[in-house]
Nucleic acid binder design. Sequence first.
RNA 1: GAGGGCAUAGCUCAGUAGGUUAGAGCGACAGUUUGUGGCACUGUAGGUCGUGGGUUCGAGACCCAUUGUUCUCCCCA
Length: 455
Amino acid sequence: MSKPSLPQGTRDFSASVVRKRNYIFQTIRSVMESYGFQPLETPAMENLDTLMGKYGDEGDKLIFKILNNGLDNPTKHEQAKIEFDKVLAGKNTKGLTERALRYDLTIPFARYVAMNHSQLTLPFKRYQIQPVWRADRPQKGRYREFYQCDADVVGSYSLLNEVELSNLYAEVFKQLGVAVTIKMNNRKILAALAEICGGADKMVDITVAIDKLDKIGLDKVKEELSERGLNEQQINTIETYLLFNGNNEEKINSLKNLIGENETGNKGIAELEWVLNYHQNSFVGTHLQADFTLARGLNYYTGIIFEVKANDAQMGSIGGGGRYDDLTGTFDVPNIPGVGISFGVDRIYDVMEELQLFPAEVQTGTKVLFFNLGDAESRAAYSLVQSLRSKGIAAELYHENSKFDKQFKYADKKQIPYAVIIGSKELQENLVVIKNLLTGDQQSLSNSELLSFTF
RNA sequence: GAGGGCAUAGCUCAGUAGGUUAGAGCGACAGUUUGUGGCACUGUAGGUCGUGGGUUCGAGACCCAUUGUUCUCCCCA
């Protein structure tokens, strides 16, 4: 074993990063709890069957598979070799791998609902904050292990869920201090666009292309549409659609003209308007923006879809979600609709770091360091340290009787705001000296005064 | 899956057209008379130049391979 290293695309999180990440997690968690969502955790690994085929061909390739144990058993050698040949032929085989790491939180949740739906009270609202793994090639902002943070409601068709979820988004980002725009569209509207452009079967092609608008621009989207088999007239219609502008009302009016009598489209518009109207007089409304160019790559969405963007940072979406009609159908439990959202924690972290939105309190660890000035002195200090700890104040006793210099430096490094000095003199007088390391001010206190000191 | 960049001290990097004992800053450690720090000064330690081949009288520099890392495309968060 030479130099130790991390597996590609994974990260260690040091104290200050963990504290900031926890701050984000805590904020999200507390808001979700206040909306009645309940926590769920699922295993890091699932049966390969549960995951395969749920994320498309590309997704299947990116699932981290776990090699079965016991393949070195001599009695299984022959079988293992046969199985391996199947793998070389591009097939998956239970003989070699029957488990895989969680790829996202949605499918494990669907599996959970499918297994437990008879006991669950519907609608079931759960949130889940756990890492997921993808055998992707890492690059900027993309890792092989990263956290997802999802909230879903299953078993309800009510649009009130969409109202609440958009509200939840707004609330979380308000608490985090991140100015955001919550973009909203409806897959029914996109379906209508496809119908108008000559075929519902073109829906996937159209959404995949439109989804890239932000990234590659209108011209490239038109190119891609053309490559995907749409003719000039159809592309022109889509261009008109993509260029709608104005406020929410104006855009909706333009859309209504284009959609005309299309039934699906009008249903989609009505749903969108309902949610927008619900928020008309709340603070959420100011963040909501109807954006018909929003598509979302995932094809299981069927109704309203969301995406959140930070207003003051150059960054892709920091959250997204939408309604899907049949979450558990793939597990043979039909007719359970759902709607969910997710937070991109890593990106939220980057945005908050860039805009310096983390409050200073997030960073404080140890509040007070007791200097170690000898055996008798440190014993007196230790009992005070324990008393402070029992009051919930993070306190440390320096581990050795070192020079002042070193003890001060330790406090500096750990950004400890206070030092308590108990030397032979203080010990005799039964006092302590407390020093504010930022200002340099110090004062003598009795032991009981120290214990009621506000750090 | 396809294609680029990078790899020198714990960290960030220099290292000029291949040429003697590979440098700096930061950090670490020690000291500047061991009860008041963050500064300053002095000193010390720390590198088989990712690894393996090759070209050359001579390679950290050039060539090939390999590994790691990073970025872009595909796809996605």
